[in-house]
Write a protein that binds this DNA or RNA. Structure first.
Lengths: 204, 204, 204, 204
DNA sequence: GATGAATGAGCGTTCATTCAT
DNA sequence: CATGAATGAACGCTCATTCAT
């Protein structure tokens, strides 16, 4: 019987192998044989640790999502504005430090659209990311004395970030615009928001 | 002898069939047999009109891109601000009127990342969309008397729009935030831009 | 209604086209489309002039066989020994003047082994070639005053020639050995044959 | 864990199955499904043991070539003349004991003409066969005190043998002529060769 | 646990043949 | 007569998955 750590290690090996193969060839084209080879394991082992190929994809999605969230922890404890700037730049640095990761996400989103198991995990990841932004935005709005629809603001920020990464990876574009634009979006939203001490004018 | 339009019609049939099947099952999972059946044609005909499956995907990408651009023509001739607002809402209305189209784009982007033939067409579509936004942004900046980096602004707008559509389709989110946020982004960018008549204060 | 000459011309066009394509790709790999293209005709026309692909192969076999026989007519009227030498060299010159032809024969023999219609034509060609050699050998044996089994001798000569061409085309070998050897074979057969005026010693 | 011999056995099964099917239907017409069925295996297994169909054909060619050479070993150790007679009759007995084998060779030669991988193996087989004949011819020429171009002689012998087998299998002919003729060829070549002890008369 | 042989369905693609125009 | 669109069976090959060892 393997120690629990060995199971985790084998699973992690296979998850990384899927990421590696999938980033270059896509999920469907990543064959079990190739994944096993990239992991240095026998093909038959894949089905010992995962019931099927889709479960492996779900595990990778969870893994990448957890990593992403962990990375954002670095912004904890900063002042509101600095924290939001940090969150934005941490997001956008994905494509520099981890080119494979972005490729994986593109494939995952495509699969999420028609595999409920993947879609659910992806939706959870988005929810978590958004909630981090909500917290940061709330703190900033409070510091600026504004009443902001932070849910919508966070969704918009994430959309700008995600869109910027995707388009940058697949269709190029001017360099470094996303960070600037993300902050302009924050300022634009804050400028349009009513002052916190005059709620009666909010709807105006 | 078949009329010339016959060929175009058959090709269009097959392109629509691919869109239909692909939106629900993805590109790889859309088999030639299924596509042919969705088009009401014999399987062998697919390769009579397209050299291979990838060429059909490229044709669909071109077709969807052309449709998208055509839709934006509706904003022609409006005043700067109205035109930009119209462009934004035309983009964002894609998911309402054409749910299949959004699903197709998700799959196309995933394929564009590793099929050069698809990637080139997609990059061309993005370029065209961005140039429409550049024109509109330039007109607006001029009307407001601001000096704007319109390339970066257009890229950011498109990123926000594309990200909003994608995340909305795959992970939900608050309703209708994207249009509001897009305009906040525009205002934020304009607010941060120097006045056109006082270039010396640009860096201020 | 086409004039008879047009029918013949179209058929000849297609036969030459098959030869051309088949020499390089083999019979099975020579598609109707390709053959038609090589002939400069529409694909559908092939089945106007030949009931099916095999009939086209049979026609080509007949055509090549007839050409081969015609070529041998050049040796008519020569003295016995010169005539046989000429026949041998005419056979062996096939690979120099018509490289495609040899390639076709290799494919035809392979098909002849399992298509009766082709096999029959091929057998007829061999019979005709052999009978030319029989005539020449008979004349030579008579001139030398020997009683030769000319059927066996002609078969052996043809075997040597055909084997030499085939092996030369597919596996190389010393240059020009076949002509020398063919004549050595003739002399060897004649030397082993009894004198025509002492038939009683033939079986010795 | 399968024993190493298991792999060899499966490969041999498939090679024999290809020989069986190919002799009757040709290489192109021998479908993977049919070959697998003839071997009593599942269709998918063929590509488990051979990368593709052509590799299976190459393996068969190597196998038949090796068998042919092994058969010739029976002539080892005989006196020069007896050895050569034995080599000739061993070659020519192919069509009696192994009708399938001859059919396979016809197909292989046709494929060798346009598949380099097959052509190379076939050329190697011919080379080996010829070198056996060279050795035997050399010994015989020495015993007879003659200076013979043994390379050319061996090539001619092989051509006569191969041509005789091929024509016999596809177009009939008088029975048993080839062995007689092969020996007549040998005697004819020896008769035309200069004496070994009078090299100055070689050109005479 | 670990292996890789085995299965058979399904893939993209090719093709000879037919036939409406 | 001539065209090439249309058909659907069959091809080589890949694959996730299973399972005996």
């Amino acid at each position: 019987m393997p120690r629990p750590s060995q199971v985790s290690q084998r699973r992690a090996q296979l998850i990384r192998a899927l990421a590696q193969v999938m980033a270059q060839q896509g999920y469907e084209a990543a064959s079990i044989r190739e994944i096993a080879q990239a992991a240095g394991l026998a093909p038959g082992l894949v089905h010992h640790y995962f019931p099927d190929k889709e479960a492996l994809l779900v595990a990778l999605t969870e893994d990448l999502g957890a990593q992403w969230l962990t990375r954002l922890d670095e912004a904890e404890g900063l002042a509101p504005e600095a924290r939001l700037r940090r969150l934005i730049s941490l997001h956008l640095s994905v494509d520099e430090a981890r080119p494979d990761e972005l490729g994986c996400w593109l494939q995952i989103i495509a699969e999420a659209a028609r595999r409920p198991s993947v879609g659910a995990v992806w939706a959870g990841v988005v929810l978590s990311l958004r909630s981090r932004l909500v917290v940061a935005l709330t703190a900033l709005a409070e510091a600026r004395g504004r009443t902001l629809d932070v849910e919508a603001g966070a969704a918009a920020l994430l959309a700008l970030i995600y869109g910027g990464l995707t388009l940058g990876a697949t269709a190029g574009g001017p360099p470094g615009y996303a960070a600037t634009a993300a902050w302009a979006l924050v300022e634009g939203l804050l400028a349009a928001a009513p002052s916190a001490d005059s709620p009666s004018q909010a709807a105006g």
